[in-house]
Design a protein around this nucleic acid. Structure first.
Lengths: 213, 213
DNA sequence: TTCGAAATGTTAATTGATTGACAATAATTG
DNA sequence: CAATTATTGTCAATCAATTAACATTTCGAA
């Protein structure tokens, strides 16, 4: 593995899609696939797929194609899905509950070990096989359990203070659903933003733009 | 307005960010801002911001900058946020409930007019000031209320059939949280995907990659 | 009212991403 | 076992996006 120098974000963002599709193929019992076939199924060019995969190594066989199960495993490895990063979730409101219960963290490289909130009526609540904890006990918890990733499902107003506290406790990885701008404040942090509002506005633009024609 | 020929997705995806930040400035009482100042606050280059804005028109004044409230309104208009597209949501599970209650559709160009599910224990449930309806009544509802956008918070297995039904009922705009690939099947549809699993895997890659160094 | 500073809009240069082309190679067929 | 076909890996060419440069305009101060 690892001819990788610096793989571009564009490539990385396509990997999960390849992975998902390969899992799907494996389940269907397909054992072999070519870049051309992949390209038609995924709506990409064969060239792009080969180029993408070759950022990480030559997984195919010339004249033959790719072996589904092998390629699938390779991509899973590249994505690091077997590492179980201990993770804590903040905010047990609607969004936090959805994320906590809806996501299969275990199969995507993470392990949810704690959920925190500061509202009395949520603390103690059962969620994703965990009891929602009081943020007051955060420091103690972190020193003991050593989480490395934090999920932000809190309002923007709460995010700033929380981010600082977590940063000071050594956490550098964030899955951020709030509109608080973590990457500006902590340049050495790894931040993946999910801005649902932005996504919706983008859609709104495209609909408006389409109907303007 | 509208020197726009074909604005690239890269630009469009930055617009909501500009918009949010301008709202924020407006609330703070800032009346005027330069591209340079915007660029440092948002972590972009001033050049890019000017280039982006000039896809839509010259909103600034040379030697002076941009008037916050005016620019904010302009971008809101470009995004089409004042249009209230009637929207229906599918799936009243954890994710559907979160999206239904958490999002402020009204300020982002949409109006949620119906929520559908097919599970008896969810039908009738109150959610976002609406009663969850049985999917069985979908056709009738659509003929009467004429929704133009559908939100997919259903499992992949349910998405295919539903998509076909909605497409036949004339719906062409989708906010898709499922892993069903709408854009492959319906090339004339406008689809905005939110793939939370992919987002999480991407983050996993970056964490693994970082710690490999 | 004139001058200098500041900042835009726009064109050019650069960098990055995608696509195309093809030689090299492996599997398969006759 | 040789010939044919399929398909990769990779290099080159194209296309797209970002950054840099600068002429032009406006504001504000002297």
């Amino acid at each position: 593995m690892s001819r990788r120098e610096k793989v571009s974000m564009s490539v990385i963002r396509r990997l999960p899609r390849y992975y998902r599709f390969l899992i799907h193929l494996k389940e269907k019992g397909v054992t072999r696939i070519s870049s051309t076939e992949l390209s038609t199924k995924l709506g990409l060019t064969a060239s792009q797929i080969r180029q993408d995969l070759n950022c990480f190594g030559g997984f195919g066989q010339q004249g033959y194609g790719y072996i589904v199960s092998q390629l699938c495993d390779e991509i899973g490895n590249i994505l690091g899905l077997s590492g179980k990063y201990p993770t804590i979730l903040f905010g047990a409101g609607n969004l936090g509950r959805a994320i906590g219960t809806h996501m299969s963290f275990e199969s995507e490289g993470f392990r949810l070990i704690g959920i925190f909130d500061n509202s009395p009526e949520r603390i103690g609540m059962e969620l994703a096989n965990l009891k929602v904890r009081d943020v007051a006990g955060l420091e103690e918890f972190c020193k003991k359990e050593k989480p490395v990733m934090a999920i932000f499902c809190v309002p923007r107003t709460a995010a700033g203070e929380l981010a600082e506290q977590l940063y000071n406790l050594g956490i550098r990885n964030f899955w951020n659903f709030s509109h608080y701008d973590l990457s500006m404040r902590y340049p050495d942090a790894i931040v993946e933003n999910v801005h649902l509002n932005d996504s919706l506005m983008t859609l709104c633009y495209r609909i408006s733009d389409q109907s303007a024609k």
